[in-house]
Design a protein around this nucleic acid. Structure first.
Lengths: 205, 205
DNA sequence: GTCTATACCAGGATAGAC
DNA sequence: GTCTATCCTGGTATAGAC
């Protein structure tokens, strides 16, 4: 096509970017419902109205699609607030964050099943998941340390802090799973009970 | 042990029963490592030295094999003690039960990934998992109610009891997952901290 | 740059032979 | 009981159409 002098950046790849987002969204649903290994490229492609080869074309492989989905999930959940909250308030807000999963069941299904599936080091998502957990635990530990330094709670050793943030994470993961298994589960009540009890314990440990 | 010579239990299915147990054991490892969808019948069959069609013959389908594996897992974990323990002592023993997972990583991997994957009602293991959770929650609730009636702890409403047993279950599931992702995780320390804190709270809620 | 058609191989399931 | 042969689905790779 070497003829026109003015090569405008006319939108050919707008379609591609949009298509990519659409495919990631659908893949999120399918992986969420059937797990990574259980959700097929052909199913995702069919729901998107494209050929399954298009998925490979865009993401290189099924694993590449998974990575894209996990990154999108990461982006969405990190953005969901709590950026300007710190110290004890961060923990006090967690019940709301958890309750928000009610509106994103697919996302929670996806992350829960991938997290469990990727516990095996051979899984394509293993690195992503371990990084995510390490980072989350560190964030929580930072806020807890901050609360200690602000004098809001008693002193906690690094080992104690690690135990505390692991328990918080466990409660959120575990209650999330129970809600997936039984939507009658009252996420907010359980997590609130835990948060209040933990903060009370930190005051008189 | 001589028994009635009348019972026509001739040898042929001794092999079958033993083979079946062997296959379940291998399937447990493979599913534990690659997940249900990720572990192939051919891999399991190869490790057992039989043809993959033999697996279908014994268990009807891959799903049937999964069910057999889950039931075996159920049998093993239910049997692992705690049958004659009740009330508050039941909760005090949970850290040991959790710590025992260290010797059965494959089983914990299997159950954790299936539990998450099976949160979707369409999954073959959904019925098993929801039944298991319902039953476990009921068992825990029974022991907690017993502790209330024995006067070991303050009165708890049914709603409060549900919250408490869900939190216990969440902690065990969540800490188990974190240990799978990072074997350095100190399961016993975390769960012990939680148990002590919960029991303390039940004394002065 | 985006998409399709097609071929290839692994894996689940079935039927029938030994 | 176990195997072989066969069928269908699904992940991957390539060629070529717009």
């Amino acid at each position: 096509m070497p003829e026109s002098a003015e090569t405008r950046t006319r939108g050919p790849y707008r379609t591609g970017v949009r298509r990519r987002e659409q495919l990631i969204g659908i893949a999120m649903d399918v992986f969420g419902e059937h797990g990574f290994a259980g959700g097929s490229l052909r199913t995702i492609a069919e729901q998107a109205g494209v050929n399954h080869a298009t998925l490979i074309q865009h993401f290189g492989s099924k694993e590449g699609l998974l990575t894209a989905v996990l990154e999108e999930w990461d982006r969405r959940t990190v953005e969901n607030g709590l950026t300007d909250i710190s110290g004890l308030d961060y923990f006090r807000r967690l019940p709301e964050v958890m309750a928000a999963h009610r509106d994103n069941r697919g996302l929670l299904e996806l992350f829960t099943s991938i997290a469990a599936e990727a516990s095996s080091p051979a899984h394509p998502g293993h690195a992503f998941i371990t990084r995510r957990y390490t980072s989350n635990l560190a964030t929580l530990a930072g806020h807890l340390q901050e609360a200690v330094e602000a004098g809001d709670i008693i002193h906690l050793s690094p080992a104690q802090i690690e135990i505390e943030v692991r328990l918080f994470t466990a409660v959120m993961d575990g209650i999330g799973l129970q809600w997936l298994l039984n939507p009658e589960t009252d996420i907010h009540a359980s997590v609130t009970t835990y948060v209040e009890r933990a903060i009370a314990a930190w005051g008189r440990l």
